[in-house]
């Protein structure tokens, strides 16, 4: 009997030590979580600031975060309280309760009501996320186009985004979707240049596997699926200045092969004047490069390296 009691006492001491250890470990966890946000931003919030749709998604996210935090603390609080409060003690008897219909209906309805509220909030916010606004005054003045989606006044810049293993190609021009290669539209790879305060519509396609277009600060991601065209838009308020370049980073978000990690995208926002200048310079560079290729082909054909139809 005494041996047993002794053993129990030792057991209890060991229990205390284990509890102290577990508290220490929990503290270290909390510590690492508390210091992590200092390391960089976006610990609990979404990236935004580059476009109204990204901002709207971010504020929708924040509303859900507040509701979620309340739900979490209530549920976790009840769990912790019951675990600490209702430990087995001498003489304590567990309440033999099988259920409580009123309570159970109550929390089912409460959970449903929270979700109804979230649904309403989402659908209230939705139009501002999916429908592009007009370009602001001071934005680029453009002709109308029939491609979806379209701001109310129909004026927008269209950029065709083509995903391929493992680079993004951008073709600039309202007609880019129909003839991305045939027409002499300016294009660029990896770095997209867009005018500020202007509604930019992206027509997204893929030439090989599924990719996903995503620049977090400019809005949500859109898959680039071969055989489909998908659309998104953004409207960046700030243009680059020589001191502060405005460049938003993003990358392909859908596994597309071995160099998926290298399929990055940069979007540089410039003033409308700089944008038109950049476009014509880009066209110039492309036609010069094309001229060089034609010249080289002519030389190689003359030398007999290429046959007359341009093949090796």
């Amino acid at each position: 009997m005494r041996a047993l009691a002794n053993e129990q006492q030792i057991g209890r001491q060991r229990g205390h030590r284990a509890r102290a250890l577990s508290f220490a470990l929990a503290l270290s966890l909390l510590g690492s979580l508390a210091f992590a946000p200092i390391a960089s931003a976006n610990f609990l919030t979404l990236k935004h600031g580059g476009s109204p749709n990204a901002n709207q998604i971010s504020s929708l996210y924040n509303i859900i975060l507040y509701i979620a935090a309340v739900v979490f603390f209530v549920v976790a609080g009840a769990l912790l309280y019951s675990v600490f409060k209702f430990r087995a003690k001498k003489g304590a008897v567990a309440a033999q309760v099988h259920g409580n219909t009123r309570l159970e209906i109550g929390w089912t309805v409460a959970a449903a009501l929270i979700l109804v509220a979230l649904t309403v909030i989402t659908f209230v916010k939705l139009p501002k996320i999916i429908n592009p606004p007009n370009s602001s005054t001071g934005g680029l003045v453009l002709s109308a186009s029939v491609t979806q989606p379209t701001p109310p006044n129909g004026k927008k810049v269209t950029v065709c985004v083509q995903g391929r293993q493992y680079i993004w190609r951008y073709t600039y021009g309202n007609d880019c979707l129909n003839n991305a290669f045939a027409s002499k539209l300016p294009y660029s790879y990896q770095l997209m240049v867009v005018p500020a305060n202007t509604t930019v519509i992206l027509d997204i396609q893929s030439t090989d596997v599924v990719h996903s277009w995503w620049v977090p600060s400019l809005g949500g991601k859109v898959d680039a699926v071969p055989g489909y065209t998908t659309y998104t838009w953004f409207k960046a308020p700030k243009a680059s200045t020589p001191q502060r370049p405005v460049i938003y980073h993003g990358q392909c978000a859908q596994l597309c092969g071995r160099d998926h990690a290298a399929m990055t995208a940069q979007v540089q926002v410039v003033t409308p004047a700089q944008y038109t200048a950049w476009l014509s310079r880009q066209s110039d560079l492309i036609s010069k490069a094309n001229a060089q290729v034609t010249q080289l082909r002519a030389i190689l054909t003359a030398q007999g390296v290429l046959s007359s139809n341009g093949n090796l």
Partner: peptide
């Protein structure tokens, strides 16, 4: 969203089972 309701019900029921129990940890 709907699937959140029965899942929530389960969690509440588990906590209610612990509530006023004589918990052997």
């Amino acid at each position: 969203f709907l699937i959140g309701v029965p899942t929530g019900v389960k969690v509440f029921n588990w906590i209610a089972t612990l509530w006023r129990g004589s918990i052997v940890m």
